[in-house]
Nucleic acid binder design. Structure first.
Lengths: 153, 153
DNA sequence: CTTGAAACGCGAGAATC
DNA sequence: GATTCTCGCGTTTCAAG
C-alpha cells in the first residue's frame, strides 16, 4: 500500500465504475500495472465492496432517525441482531459502550413507518428501553474514511 | 421506475462494477435495453454515486465513535459545518431534533486520535457541549436502503 | 421492447526492455 | 516497473422489426 494505491482507492471511491485505463491515465501508470494493483487491492480485502448509492428520495424514504436500544440481558442479543438484520430500513446497528446497548440508524418513509418500525423493535424479546431521535437534516454523509490527497500515507 | 429498474439497482448495489451485459443476462433484457435503463437511472439522479468501500482495518482506522454536539446559537452553524467537513475522520454529521444539535459518526485510529479530534471539535467556536460514545462493534452497516426482492414496488 | 451488425475501446496475456 | 502486440469481450450506436 503506497501512495499510488491510495490515489487509486481515492479515484474508485469517487467513482467505482472507473476503468483501469482511465485510472492509469490519471495516476500515470501503465494499464497493466494499474490492473495488477487493482486486483491486489480487491483480493487482499482492502477493497471491501463496489457499491451504488441510491438517492433515498426516489425510494420515498426521506426520513432518518437514530434509535437507541437497551436489552435486558446479553442472552437476548442473537434474537435482536436477527431482528435488526431483517429490517430493511435499519441501515446501521452499532453495539455501544454506554448507557444504551445499541444505536440504530434508520431511513424510512415517514412517521407512520417509523412508528411501526419502533413498535416492531420494541416487541423484540429482551428489548427493555428505546430512545428515538429524529434527524432533521444530514450535513455530511461519507461512506468510507477520507484518504487524503495521496501525498502522504 | 418499474420492478426491472429495482432489480438493476439491487445488482449494482451489490457490485457497482457489474457490466451492462452481465446485468442483461440476469434481468433477461437485451444489452441495449439495459444500457439505456442504466443511463436513465444515472442521469435522473436515482443513482447518486458509484463508490468503493474500503476496509478501515487496512487504513488502521479501527475505532468508531458517536459524538453528540450542541452549539450555543444557530449563528455558529456555518463555522461548525465547515469544521466538520474538514475532518476526514468524521464520516457523518446529522442535525438533530432533540437535546443535542448534532450527531457525528467518527472512524479513527485509536483513543489518541479520537481525543485530539474531540479537542478540535470542542475548540470550534460556539460548541457548548459534547458527549462521545464509543462503538464496541458494528452489527450491521448498509450504505443504502434495502430494495427488497424486486417483486413489488 | 427485440435482434443483428459495425466500430470503438477496454482488459488480459505474453514477450520484451 | 514500461511497452507493444494480439485476442476476446463489452459498449455504443445504428438499423430494422
Amino acid at each position: 500500500m503506497d501512495s499510488i494505491d491510495i490515489r487509486i482507492l481515492k479515484l474508485l471511491e469517487s467513482n467505482a465504475r472507473m476503468t483501469a485505463s482511465e485510472i492509469s491515465g490519471i495516476v500515470r501508470l501503465s494499464v497493466p500495472a494499474c490492473s495488477e494493483r487493482l486486483k491486489k487491492l480487491e483480493s487482499s480485502g482492502v477493497i471491501k465492496q463496489y457499491t451504488t448509492i441510491i438517492d433515498n428520495r426516489y425510494l420515498k424514504k426521506t426520513m432518518t432517525a437514530m434509535m437507541f436500544v437497551s436489552l435486558e440481558r446479553p442472552r437476548f442479543t442473537d434474537k435482536f441482531v436477527e431482528a435488526v438484520n431483517a429490517e430493511g430500513d435499519v441501515l446501521e446497528c452499532h453495539y455501544l459502550a454506554g448507557d444504551f446497548d445499541y444505536l440504530l440508524k434508520i431511513v424510512t418513509e415517514n412517521t407512520d413507518t417509523l412508528e411501526r418500525l419502533l413498535n416492531r423493535i420494541k416487541s423484540v424479546q429482551g428489548v427493555q428501553k428505546t430512545r428515538t431521535i429524529v434527524v432533521l437534516s444530514t450535513v455530511k454523509n461519507n461512506y468510507s474514511v477520507s484518504l487524503g490527497d495521496g501525498t502522504d500515507a
